[in-house]
């Protein structure tokens, strides 16, 4: 029971991270109908920016809460630049090309980002000293002590706050309306005088900033990153997006939590070596048997 509770806490924390990445997949898919294969690597770049900022701020005397906010903002801004540039360079020219072209271009972009970071930052893993330490312990008199660390609380809280802000942004503002209009019919939206290019750019900026927050959480939670973390995290987050129903933002969060739980329980109860097999198996099962996900629209091909 205690063990189960601990796994649940860990799973929800990890799930928050995946959920934040999944939102980027889902939003981009919703608006231009492509799988942004490079999104996982954007997350990786976010993790690196956060890592570098933490190292720099550690040399200063700024208080921890301020550092956290600064790192959050810095990662979001710099990573958003990556998302924006990737869209401009690799996807925008391909909007009218054949249907697999953007996917292939995204694949190329993913290879570029990974190897660029490897070249610039080196191939070795990077370790970060714990930034937030300590936590609450429960069931201290029993054999298995359940820990809820401050870091986990921080991660879940930030996720909830960001989710709330972005949900408001998308349901209540002109930008959100423009996004939903683009999802329905891009040509019509353009004819209504809405700047479609800017709307798509904004989607990439929002998706990448959320991914960068996930990257910051990831580097704080695990304490180690390398240039390759985007591949697996991207696969898992993509699975989350499909599981939740691709195109749906609450779905992405829900899917993220589920994937986080599946991963943690699999490692906790079944086998830690085959952890990645679990991720891929989930992906395959979800795509084959459950491609519309929980909150997605059924996909009847219009003939």
């Amino acid at each position: 029971m205690e063990y189960f509770l601990q796994q649940l806490i860990n799973g929800l924390t990890l799930g928050s991270v995946y959920g934040l990445i999944a939102i980027g997949y889902t939003m981009v898919y919703g608006i231009i109908g492509m799988i942004n294969f490079a999104h996982g690597d954007i997350f990786m770049v976010g993790a690196f920016v956060a890592l570098i900022s933490f190292i720099l701020f550690a040399l200063t005397a700024i208080a921890l809460p301020v550092i956290l906010i600064l790192v959050l903002l810095i990662s979001m801004v710099f990573t958003a630049c990556y998302g924006w540039t990737v869209e401009k360079l690799a996807y925008k020219p391909l909007r009218k090309s054949f249907r697999l072209a953007p996917l292939i271009s995204a694949l190329g972009m993913s290879i570029v980002l990974q190897n660029y970071v490897q070249a610039a930052q080196g191939a070795r893993i990077k370790t970060l000293q714990p930034v937030i330490q300590g936590g609450f312990n429960f069931f201290e008199e029993s054999e298995f002590v359940v820990t809820l660390s401050y870091l986990q609380i921080f991660i879940v809280l930030v996720t909830i706050v960001l989710m709330a802000i972005f949900t408001l942004l998308i349901t209540r503002t002109a930008l959100g309306r423009a996004q939903r209009a683009c999802e329905q019919d891009r040509t019509m939206t353009a004819l209504m005088g809405i700047n479609v290019d800017r709307t798509i750019s904004m989607t990439f900026i929002i998706g990448s900033s959320l991914a960068s927050v996930a990257g910051m959480m990831f580097v704080m939670y695990y304490g180690v990153i390398d240039f390759y973390i985007g591949f697996l995290a991207g696969i898992k987050a993509f699975t989350a997006a499909v599981l939740g129903g691709i195109g749906s933002i609450p779905g992405a969060m829900l899917g993220g939590l589920l994937i986080g739980l599946i991963e943690v329980f699999w490692s906790g109860y079944i086998s830690i070596e085959y952890k990645d097999i679990a991720a891929f198996t989930t992906l395959v099962i979800v795509l084959i048997f459950f491609p519309t996900g929980f909150l997605g629209k059924p996909d009847i091909e219009k003939v």
Partner: peptide, 17 residues
């Protein structure tokens, strides 16, 4: 090692574009 893969990925993007 890694620059060549950057060039390779870049080539993929450029071809598509």
């Amino acid at each position: 090692e890694s620059y060549r893969m950057v060039a390779f990925g870049g080539a993929m993007v450029l071809i598509m574009v």
